[in-house]
Computed example of a mutant assay.
Amino acid sequence: MSNPLRIAAVFAAICFSGSAAAIDYQVHGYAAQGFVLSRHNDFFGDSTDGSFDYYEAGINAAVQVQPNLTFAAQAAIRDAGISDDGSLRLDYAVADYRLVSEASIQAGLRAGKVKNALGFYNETRDVVFTRPSILLPSVYSDNQNQRSLIFTSPGAQVYGGTVIGVHELSFTGTLNAERDVRKSDERLLVSLTVPFDLRIGDSWNVQIMDSIDGGKWQLAYSRFSGQFRLSTAPEIDLVGRFDVDLNVFSARYNAERFTVTAEYVLVDNDNRLTFMGAPFLHQRVAADSGYLQAEYRVRSDWTLMARMDGFYSDRHDRSGHDFAAANPGVDRRSRFSHDFTVGVNWRPGEHWGFWAEHHWINGTATLQPLENPPPVRDQRWSMLMLMAGYKF
């Protein structure tokens, strides 16, 4: 049994060992089916012919066994073309112990497979009802398979908050344990012709947020730091170490009818490879991405959304010309992506939601190469995304 499953089993045993009268629990679930129709390039399946290869579903439960102790877990499936394989996973499983719970100050500890606080949407990216759109901005790398890498991780988390005047300050700090990368994910991150194993070393992330005037303004800074370790058979002796640092700057303004959100992320990678014990590659990569998004609530059940989004594999070479010149045969268009999106969301009732959005995109950096083997990809492409969801 894997470590997360052991955690879930222990949680269940503890929860149901008490008296039924003492247990306060909630069970919720969701399911959503998507459709993607694109021009020129494929996204989440064979979308140039129309793809239903995009769906997600999950069921979660929270059990409060004591006033200051809660257990929560979620099992989920997600299929998103080559980016996710639809296999059943334990999304999260946590024990949450509230150390302090007063009107002006909160503090606690979580342990298990915890959600990582990163930007505004990482902790709520699993359910379409809690996202601003079907597809998250490029800051969250929805099509680069980073959901399973940074959404949750086994580890321990400390959190707290306090109110000072009109400021509601909160802090979350997480230390994640070393873990293996799923085989289905490895092929999306590393392209090698020999067998290899990829692990994520100890990682950590922190988030500081200030919610001002009852949430009218929200400002946040998040940082994630981790290390990937690659190894091969001793007779090949190819060893890799890839250090990753993300700094996310977030700002949001909430009014009665509209919300404006902006986020910007700096990504620094330090990649090292050795072959037969000798240095083989040392590469530093400085990427960045950001977006500006507006949501307008026409009525309580209708919301319009517009977003400008940009991603660059190298913030010092935004056009990709330098990279293409140094790497003959590489398409410079794969080094950037500009995405303009408009969308609409209709929620006719408590349980149902319907989303539609159209993307106009320049550049191919956010495409999966395995779905779009070169040189087929086109620089300018577009796609229509639809989704229907149900929750209880």
Results as ranks from 00 to 15, higher is better:
residue 352 W to E: 08
residue 109 L to A: 11
residue 107 A to I: 09
residue 14 I to H: 12
residue 121 Y to G: 04
residue 171 F to V: 13
residue 196 F to N: 06
residue 262 A to M: 05
residue 146 Q to C: 07
residue 262 A to I: 02
residue 250 S to A: 12
residue 40 H to A: 00
residue 6 R to L: 14
residue 45 G to Q: 00
residue 152 T to S: 15
residue 328 P to L: 00
residue 100 V to T: 09
residue 206 V to G: 11
residue 320 G to H: 08
residue 385 M to V: 11
residue 72 A to S: 15
residue 81 G to N: 06
residue 366 T to C: 04
residue 199 R to P: 10
residue 301 D to E: 14
residue 83 S to D: 14
residue 340 F to C: 13
residue 158 V to H: 00
residue 9 A to Q: 11
residue 356 A to E: 06
residue 86 G to K: 01
residue 194 V to H: 12
residue 378 D to L: 10
residue 240 G to M: 01
residue 209 M to V: 01
residue 104 S to H: 14
residue 147 R to C: 11
residue 357 E to L: 04
residue 277 G to H: 06
residue 293 Q to T: 04
residue 98 R to N: 14
residue 58 G to K: 03
residue 244 V to H: 03
residue 136 L to W: 02
residue 244 V to I: 02
residue 367 L to P: 01
residue 298 V to M: 15
residue 4 P to M: 01
residue 379 Q to E: 15
residue 344 V to N: 10
residue 307 R to L: 12
residue 116 N to V: 07
residue 208 I to V: 09
residue 71 F to R: 14
residue 100 V to H: 05
residue 77 I to H: 09
residue 18 G to I: 10
residue 157 Q to N: 07
residue 163 V to F: 04
residue 17 S to W: 09
residue 261 T to K: 06
residue 264 Y to H: 13
residue 322 D to G: 04
residue 364 T to S: 08
residue 286 A to H: 13
residue 178 E to L: 11
residue 324 A to E: 01
residue 260 V to Q: 06
residue 136 L to A: 04
residue 111 A to L: 12
residue 97 Y to E: 08
residue 240 G to C: 01
residue 14 I to A: 14
residue 72 A to L: 11
residue 357 E to V: 04
residue 124 T to W: 00
residue 330 V to E: 07
residue 267 V to S: 12
residue 181 V to I: 15
residue 232 T to D: 05
residue 189 L to F: 07
residue 128 V to P: 07
residue 250 S to Y: 03
residue 346 W to L: 14
residue 339 D to N: 14
residue 97 Y to R: 08
residue 269 N to R: 11
residue 383 M to L: 14
residue 41 N to I: 01
residue 390 Y to D: 03
residue 158 V to D: 01
residue 331 D to F: 00
residue 340 F to L: 14
residue 183 K to E: 15
residue 12 A to T: 13
residue 374 P to Q: 04
residue 288 D to E: 10
residue 9 A to D: 14
residue 238 L to P: 02
residue 22 A to C: 12
residue 334 S to T: 11
residue 298 V to L: 15
residue 369 P to S: 10
residue 253 Y to H: 03
residue 251 A to W: 07
residue 313 S to N: 13
residue 224 F to V: 07
residue 291 Y to A: 12
residue 108 G to H: 02
residue 248 V to I: 07
residue 282 H to D: 13
residue 13 A to N: 09
residue 180 D to L: 10
residue 103 A to T: 10
residue 316 H to Y: 11
residue 306 A to N: 08
residue 350 E to K: 12
residue 59 I to N: 13
residue 142 D to R: 04
residue 276 M to Y: 09
residue 37 L to S: 02
residue 137 P to Y: 06
residue 112 G to M: 09
residue 13 A to K: 09
residue 279 P to I: 03
residue 264 Y to C: 08
residue 192 L to D: 03
residue 28 H to A: 15
residue 324 A to P: 00
residue 76 A to T: 10
residue 266 L to C: 11
residue 13 A to M: 08
residue 237 D to G: 08
residue 8 A to M: 06
residue 110 R to W: 09
residue 145 N to A: 15
residue 208 I to Y: 08
residue 87 S to G: 15
residue 330 V to H: 03
residue 193 T to K: 09
residue 192 L to H: 02
residue 143 N to G: 03
residue 200 I to F: 03
residue 37 L to G: 00
residue 161 G to P: 00
residue 382 S to Y: 02
residue 37 L to C: 00
residue 237 D to H: 02
